[in-house]
Each structure stands twice: as C-alpha cells, then as structure tokens.
Amino acid sequence: MNNKKLYLYLYYASLFVTALMMILLLVKSPAKYYNGEYELVSGFGILACIINVILVAVFTVLFGIRKKLDKVNILFPAQYILFTLIVLVLCHLFNNKLLIPYVHYSYYNVFILFNYTLLNIYSILSIGKKRRRKRK
C-alpha cells in the first residue's frame, strides 16, 4: 500500500471517528444550558460542524475529479485520530467525576472539530492539479 492510498484510508477513518463522536454527542447530549447560565453547545461548535461537512464534500468531489494527491504526511490523520481518541477517553474519565453527565464531551468537541478543520484544509491543499495532455 503506498503512502497516498494509506493517507486516503486514514482520512476517511478520521471522518468516521468524527462522525461517531458527533452521533455519540447527539444521542447522549446533556442539557444545552447548565444551571441556566452555562451554554454547552457553542455557536463555534455548530459553525465548525457545518464548515467541516462542506470541506469533506469539497475534498471528495475534487479528489473524485482529479484523482491525484500531492506529497502527503500520513502522520497528520494518524495524530488526529489518536488525539480524538485520547480526548474522548479523558472525557469519559471526567464524566465519572461529575454529576451532570456528558458535559465534557460537549465542551471538548469544539477542540476536536477545530483540529479536524485543519486536517480538511491540509487534505484539500494536497489534491494535485490535473495534468494537461501534451500535444504531439
């Protein structure tokens, strides 16, 4: 398996992990307002979610058309997946300490989505240009 193919697999694996996190968050979502004051679902979180959906669509469409990736670093999606899993494990540990469940999942998803935005921008920048056919 070459580097670029592995990058693609890892990219879609990170999409899967992010989607799983969002589903987990939606299913087990806590009250949106804590104690009437603390807003858990921030505007930035929703905005980041929408931006990421658009970026994934752009990457998929562009890669579908050009079918070419430039030089990529497979450490990027790998570190993103690792980061997401560590954050989720730590959120789970926090969850055991708290009375209102799933507060930290809601809070830290913003950090995960920010990192995912960076990964998406990197991936879109990595899509190669279509080669022009040389005239004989």
Binding site: D70, K71, N73, L75, F76, Q79, Y80, L82, F83, I86, V87, L90, L93, F94, K97, Y108, F111, F114, N115, L118, L119, I121, Y122, L125, S126
Partner: peptide, 30 residues
C-alpha cells in the same frame, strides 16, 4: 503550498499536544 501545508501540520500537532496536556492537568486537579 508545501510550506503552508507544513505549517498547518505543525499547528495541528502543537494544538493537540497542548489540549491533551491541559486536559490531563485539569483532570489531576479535579
């Protein structure tokens, strides 16, 4: 483009390390 990509990766890696370190510190201080 390659330089921008390099910087994005560096920012992401640094961001991940900082967030995880902060979380671990917060958890210990709970």
């Amino acid at each position: 483009k390659e330089i921008v990509k390099k910087y994005i990766f560096m920012v992401s890696a640094l961001f991940s390390i900082v967030v995880v370190c902060m979380m671990i510190t917060s958890y210990k201080a709970a």
